[in-house]
Each structure stands twice: as C-alpha cells, then as structure tokens.
C-alpha cells in the first residue's frame, strides 16, 4: 500500500535537490535541507513498516530522532550561524545556478539509467530510491565545490550526508541502533563546531567567502612568507 507513497516521497527528495542547486537564497536552501531531513525520517519509518511485520520501538525511535535532528536542530543551528554572520544570499557562485541545475538534472538522468539494470533487483523497494540518493549525494558535492560561502559548504556537507542516509534507507541497510545514533551525533557536533568556527572566521576575516580562505598552500603564486607569530617572544 505504502509503496506508492514512498515513490512520491523519493520523487520529492529528488525535486528538493533541484531546488537546492538552483536557489540563491540561503534561508530558502536551509528550509529545503530541513524538508529533506524530515522526509528521511518518514522514509525510514515507512521502509521498516514494509520489511517487518511488527513495529520495533528502536526503529520508531531512530526515525523520530533522525527526523528531529535533521529536520529541526541542524537547520536551527545553520540559521543561527547565518543570522550571526548576517548574510542573506549566495552571490557570484563559481558555477551559475542554471548550469548547476543542468548538471544535477543530467546527474539524475544518468543515475536513473545507471540503476535500471537488474543488479539492484530485490535489494531496493523502489525503482527511484537509489537514483534519488545518488543525486542527493551529487548535489551535496556540487554545493561544496561550486559555491563561494563557507556556510553553503557546511550545508553541502549536510545534503551529502542526507544522500548517504537515503542510500542506506533505499537499500534496506541496517547498521544498528548505536551506530546510527553515533553517526547522527557526529553530524550534529560537526555542524555545531562549524557554526562556531564560522562566527570566528567572520570576525577575523570580515567575510565568509571560502575562496578567500586560500592564504595557506604551496602552489599559490607570490606565496607570502610563512606567518611570523611573534616578533619578540618574552
């Protein structure tokens, strides 16, 4: 019964990727990431309902925590970081919005073709689950490499991680309650630390452009001399 619902949810997940690739407003993007997180929680619940006759409390708990953290807590942390750094829009991305959209569309098409063979048969409950997960991962990577703001890179990581979780759900892979909670905790702490770092970077550099975070490196022309920490010590 719920297979059709699940197909719809997978398609919404895929559509969210397209919105992410083509949108410049940060708050909007963060809301889309939150939506993806909630969808993942719902999918987790539904997929377990399909494969097991009885509802295990651990499954329900995992799905609830998953949806709660990814759909509520993480977006809240991101929005707080954006507010504190006072940025609204992603300006001048490295890869333009229409081009990003085209790339993601092509990726989605390629993923659909790639997953058409019978090598996935019996492992996944929906023809679109694995392609949607792969596309979400690609979108995350695209956001990391194609955007200028450090905050968008943090968001890209979240989308990438959502994609991996989606892959796990789509393939009915269970790594166990403790491991899934551990992964969620890691992601939560990572976003928390990233938020604090963004605040400090914003204060020190007075901008959040990741491409200007390039003072370190070996292949830069006119490389400045290594920083002298102290002229006179003691």
């Amino acid at each position: 019964m719920s297979t059709e619902y699940m197909d719809v949810i997978w398609i919404v997940l895929l559509a969210a990727d397209l919105v992410l690739a083509g949108s410049s407003r940060l708050f909007h993007c963060i809301r889309i990431v939150a939506l993806q997180g909630i969808l993942l929680g719902v999918l987790m619940l539904l997929s377990h309902g399909l494969s097991a006759e009885t509802f295990a409390w651990q499954t329900v708990l995992t799905a609830l925590i998953q949806g709660g953290i990814k759909g509520g807590l993480l977006p809240f942390l991101l929005i707080r970081a954006v507010r504190r750094a006072d940025i609204r829009r992603e300006l001048e991305p490295f890869i333009g919005y229409s081009l990003s959209l085209t790339v993601i569309l092509l990726m989605a098409a390629a993923a659909l073709v790639f997953c058409r063979g019978d090598w996935l048969a019996g492992r996944t409950h929906s023809f679109i689950a694995v392609p949607a997960a792969l596309t979400t991962m690609m979108t995350g990577l695209l956001l990391i490499v194609a955007r200028r703001k450090a905050i968008t890179q943090a968001m890209g990581f979240l989308v990438f991680e959502n994609g991996i979780t989606a892959f796990g759900i789509g393939m009915n892979l269970e790594s166990g309650f403790a491991v899934e909670m551990g992964i969620l905790l890691d992601v939560l702490v990572l976003v928390f630390i990233m938020g604090i770092t963004l605040f400090h970077i914003n204060r020190e550099f007075e901008h959040l452009d990741a491409d200007k975070l390039n003072e370190l490196g070996d292949l830069v022309e006119n490389q400045p001399a290594p920083e002298t920490n102290r002229e006179t010590a003691i």
């Binding site: 990577l141 890179q153 975070l213 003072e215």
Partner: peptide, 30 residues
C-alpha cells in the same frame, strides 16, 4: 589566528567530506 582558523575550516570540511565517502563505502560493504 586567521591562518589557524583557515586551517581548521579546511580540516573540518575536507576530512568530514572525505570520511563521509568512507561511510558510503561502509554502506556499500553492507
């Protein structure tokens, strides 16, 4: 300092994305 913050950001982002690839690898192993 500015430089150490830059290094920390790169460390966080590159290592986390890199390790996320390993998580995908672990899923594939499953």
């Amino acid at each position: 300092s500015q430089h150490s913050l830059e290094a920390m950001w790169k460390y966080l982002l590159i290592c986390s994305v890199g390790i996320a690839l390993a998580l995908f690898g672990t899923m594939l192993l499953m």
